[in-house]
Amino acid sequence: MKNEAIISIQNVTKRFPVGDGEFTALKNINLEFQRGEFAGLVGPSGSGKTTLLNIIGSLDSPTEGDALVLGKNISELSHKESALLRNKHIGFIFQVYNLLPVYTVYENVEFALLLQNIPKVQRQKMVMEALEWVGLASMADKKPDKLSGGEGQRVAIARAMVKKPEIVIADEPSANLDAENTHAILKTMRELNENLGTTFLFSTHDEKVMGYLDRIVHLRDGAVEEDEIIKSKTTNQ
């Protein structure tokens, strides 16, 4: 599964206009992520973590350089193609679970599949499977306001994973969770990473999250400070 570059960041620079000048959020970044990696971008606020995740997630494009995701150059994608890439191949997990409050747990997870026009019977199977992965099959009919924080984030993981994407981008997924729930969702994600071969890319500065990562890319002031490979991480931590 590994040793296949799924994300390739080549000399990427990202600048934003600020007033009359510019702010450089990313400076000549070069990185490569292999299929099935469980990696994280770590660094203080303003280090460029979210900007880099935006580019990898095809939500933004670099000012200079190339960002190849699943072989597609993000700079060359139209809005429609970017949306299609996210729709089919990339799952997102946010700091706040961002579940749609009027829909049930089942429907929140199902929504990702509705966008792909998957037939109902197949959808049903996939949603229940995803809810089983995160241990929430019995709560399928509950509304988000009836869930605890950890359960909400597990539904968000199921929503990101239900379409079996190649890449999952998780932006500070533990920011609103206590230690127990943080460990629980990370174990779940780690299992999915190992069982499904999904590449997970985190943005975090949470030590607990870092403890689960195979690789930590340290960013500072928009540049890679250190690319740390940590071996022999397991789900039993």
Binding site: L59, H79, A83, R86, N87, K88, F92, F94, A112, L115
Partner: peptide, 16 residues
């Protein structure tokens, strides 16, 4: 606003 944001992130096109 939040819902539309999630939908955009999930890959729903703006036009859609």
């Amino acid at each position: 606003y939040q819902e539309f944001g999630i939908r955009l992130a999930l890959g729903e096109e703006k036009g859609m």
